[in-house]
């Protein structure tokens, strides 16, 4: 009997080592919630002050994105440190590289569109490339973010199809979904 336990333990060890050496699991659920709320506030602000100039909308959106990424990174690093993730460097680096490749391409594409003075598809591009970034990086992190990636892709396509509601899809994708998934990650992995 004790031998059987030993074998089960061995399998458990193997699984843990494989997981721990490949996945960056310190994604912060709290960061998701904070970022989501931030997006909703920005959206409310835009509606409240009735910002309609596309150029200023663009600036606000890019600013929000940068702020959101910083919050996400900061809270995730804090979480990793608290967990004492010794391998933070290797797995996090891999995750971040995978995450930022699609994101940077999408960002540049947005800038090119803005340069041409065409802001119509910018919410859609942001959502779609963010979706791909999540999908791409999910292999090196929590499985949950893969589903979030799929949803962002769908919402991104909808935003492209119904361009007049672009901002609404933007707030659903970056606001609502982040709050929901932040909460899911928080309850699933942090409690």
């Amino acid at each position: 009997m004790s031998q059987e336990k030993e074998h089960l333990q061995a399998i458990q060890d193997i699984k843990t080592m494989m997981e721990r050496s490949t996945r960056f699991s310190s994604i912060s659920g709290k960061a998701g919630i904070v970022v989501g709320i931030l997006a909703v506030i920005v959206f409310a602000g835009i509606k409240w002050f009735n910002v309609t100039s596309v150029a200023s909308l663009f600036v606000v959106m890019v600013g929000t994105l940068i702020l959101a990424l910083s919050i996400g990174l900061y809270l995730s690093i804090a979480k990793a440190k608290k967990e004492g993730a010794a391998i933070f460097d290797t797995t996090a680096k891999r995750f971040l590289v995978q995450f930022f490749i699609p994101l940077i391409v999408g960002g540049i594409l947005c800038l090119i569109f803005a340069y041409h003075g065409d802001y119509t598809y910018i919410p859609s591009i942001m959502l779609i490339f963010y979706g791909f970034a999540l999908l791409h990086a999910s292999k090196f992190s929590l499985d949950t973010i893969k589903n979030l990636g799929y949803l962002e892709l769908i919402i991104g396509l909808l935003a492209a199809a119904f361009t007049t509601y672009g901002m609404w899809f933007w707030v659903i994708g970056f606001g609502l979904l982040h709050v929901i998934y932040g909460f899911i990650i928080y309850t699933k992995y942090e409690k």
Binding site: A10, I14, S21, A86
Partner: peptide, 25 residues
């Protein structure tokens, strides 16, 4: 257990350096 750990890590990573092995194990 250590060998089992080393092999598990190497199975899922193309290359692993000494420091990473040390930190993981």
């Amino acid at each position: 257990r250590i060998r089992l750990g080393i092999m598990s890590i190497l199975m899922v990573n193309e290359q692993v350096d000494f420091t990473m092995l040390k930190e993981l194990l």
